[in-house]
């Protein structure tokens, strides 16, 4: 295969790695998740607020990891990989979101009130 004449470690998808990115990705992830932990331990806010906050932080963390650890971007070599990953987002939202929508509605309709409380 033609790839043999190229040094494999010089491939664009390998060359992208850098210490700074890995270390900052590591630190940032831990810091963000630590923040979530603190918020929850301190009960900083109502349930709805807290859940929204930690969800938001987890999304930030994931984005940080994707950029800093996976080196995903829209460059020629990464474009399709990034698109593939982005396809996850709507599917995750649809399956989890619509399901909880339907079961939440279902439980309020057909279950004993005592059982619906979460």
């Amino acid at each position: 295969m033609g790839i043999d004449n190229l040094k494999p470690w010089e491939h664009p998808e390998i060359k992208g790695a850098s210490e700074v990115q890995y270390i900052s990705g590591y630190a940032l992830s831990l810091a963000l998740l630590g923040l979530s932990l603190l918020l929850v331990r301190a009960h900083a806010g109502t349930t709805v607020v807290l859940v929204s906050l930690i969800s938001f932080i987890s999304i930030l963390t994931v984005i940080a990891q994707l950029i800093l650890l996976f080196h995903l971007d829209f460059s020629e070599s990464q474009r399709w990989n990034t698109l593939t990953l982005m396809l996850n987002v709507p599917l995750l939202i649809l399956s989890v979101g619509l399901t909880s929508f339907m079961f939440h509605t279902l439980y309020t309709h057909v279950m004993l009130p005592a059982m619906t409380v979460r």
Binding site: L94, L98, F101, M102, F103, T105, L106, H109, V110
Partner: peptide
């Protein structure tokens, strides 16, 4: 986005 049409009769109610 349409899968619930296989179990409309589950009783999730009019909105769903």
């Amino acid at each position: 986005t349409v899968w619930l049409h296989h179990f409309f009769t589950m009783g999730a109610g009019p909105i769903v």
